[in-house]
Simulated assay, not measured.
Amino acid sequence: MTANAMTQPATATLPADWRDFFALTKPRVMSLVIFTGLCGLLAAPGSINPVIGFTAILCIALGAGGAATLNQWFEADIDAGMKRTAQRPIPAGRLQRTDARDFGILLSVTSVGIMGLAVHWLAAGILALSIVYYAVIYTIWLKPRTPQNIVIGGGAGAFPPLIGWIAVTGEITLMPVLLFAIIFMWTPPHFWALALFVQTDYAKVGIPMMPVVKGERSTRRQILIYAILLAPVAVAPWLIGGTAAVYGIGALILSLAFIALSIPVAMRDAGEDDIMKPEKKLFAFSILYLFALFALLVIDRVMAQYGLI
């Protein structure tokens, strides 16, 4: 990556307020993190004190916010060169880079410490791993070096349901590992759908996202391949007897819809339509897919608990 490929972030000229610090935590991403973490907690067998459960979800949120903040601290110069991210607090000059770094470290350390003291240290250890995975392994190592960054880095966002489950049970079993695997397999087609219509931003700052390095045709094929591979992983909790048919059939229908929406994306030629409606439709559905899938997991658990299935 050359120095000319990036624009240096502006020096903060105005005092930051709480909204700038909140923006560093990537609230939209955090909403998905909180939701999947909560679903993992609610779907786990056994029970947890509501206060402890709330604390666990709060720690997951704080940890995710800390990792996101450290991501923006490290990538401030890259964000400044991308239209999609140029108005984030650091590149826009509303926040000092060192303040973001210190805030990210504070959130990360606090989240792990509280999780360990209030819940248990296995959950805290996995939370710490998730922060390091996103802030270091993905952000610093993978993202600027390989087009497989999203494939390997997908684990960063896959930890919340695993942590939520462990907060209740205190152990790692096959079910929470499958929940991790679902998000891991979901991340590439989800993110590559976005990357297809913002690839010029990544190319401008020298980030080797799949469409930039391997081209649109390869990326489109891989989106369909991962959508197909995601289906059996999503249905697997039902197949192993971890859920009932409410989840299993719902997961199958959602996954078939995911594949159906991936087909027109895979079949299109590069540059065929600058509007990229199929890609945007797939990206939007992929978010709905994950919310619906994990909601079904909780619904299935509640219905089974009350003898409705």
Rank of each mutant, 00 (worst) to 15 (best):
I163Y: 13
D300S: 09
Y138H: 06
I131S: 13
R220H: 07
W238F: 01
A92D: 15
R268G: 10
R268P: 05
V213W: 01
L290R: 03
R88N: 12
G271Y: 04
I78V: 04
W73H: 12
E216D: 06
S130Y: 10
T219C: 08
I105R: 07
I78E: 14
L254Q: 07
I90R: 13
L41H: 11
I263H: 11
I183R: 08
G116C: 14
A16L: 12
I263L: 14
V151F: 02
T13Y: 04
I207P: 07
L24T: 13
A158I: 02
W192Y: 03
V198I: 03
A124V: 10
L41I: 10
I126L: 15
A304N: 05
Y202R: 06
V298H: 07
P188S: 05
S108P: 14
I90E: 15
G155W: 05
S31M: 03
A304H: 03
R19M: 13
G81T: 07
Y289F: 00
A251Q: 06
W192P: 08
A5M: 12
A56F: 14
I263P: 09
A295S: 07
R301S: 10
E75D: 12
L107M: 10
L239E: 06
L95V: 11
V51L: 14
L174P: 14
I137V: 11
I183M: 08
F22I: 04
G271L: 10
R19G: 12
D102W: 00
F180L: 08
M6G: 06
A245V: 04
M209D: 02
G271R: 14
I163C: 14
D20Q: 15
K204R: 13
F74S: 10
P50R: 10
T13A: 11
M30Y: 04
Q87T: 07
M115C: 13
S130Q: 10
T36C: 07
F35T: 00
R97Y: 02
G155D: 14
F294S: 05
V246P: 09
T11H: 13
F294R: 01
L308F: 00
A12E: 15
A203F: 04
V212I: 01
R19E: 09
M210I: 01
D269R: 10
V298T: 04
S31R: 05
A167Q: 15
T173D: 15
K83P: 00
L142M: 06
L196R: 08
I287S: 05
T146S: 09
F159Y: 11
C59S: 14
F54L: 15
Q305R: 11
V302C: 02
A76G: 09
D77G: 01
G154V: 02
I249P: 08
P15I: 07
L14S: 11
A43L: 03
A61D: 12
Y202W: 04
L70I: 08
F283E: 05
K26S: 08
L32S: 00
K83A: 08
T55I: 09
Y133E: 10
A16V: 11
W141M: 14
I225N: 09
L58R: 03
T243N: 05
R19N: 14
I126H: 12
F103C: 13
L261V: 01
Q148H: 04
V109H: 07
D201T: 00
A244S: 12
F35R: 00
T13P: 06
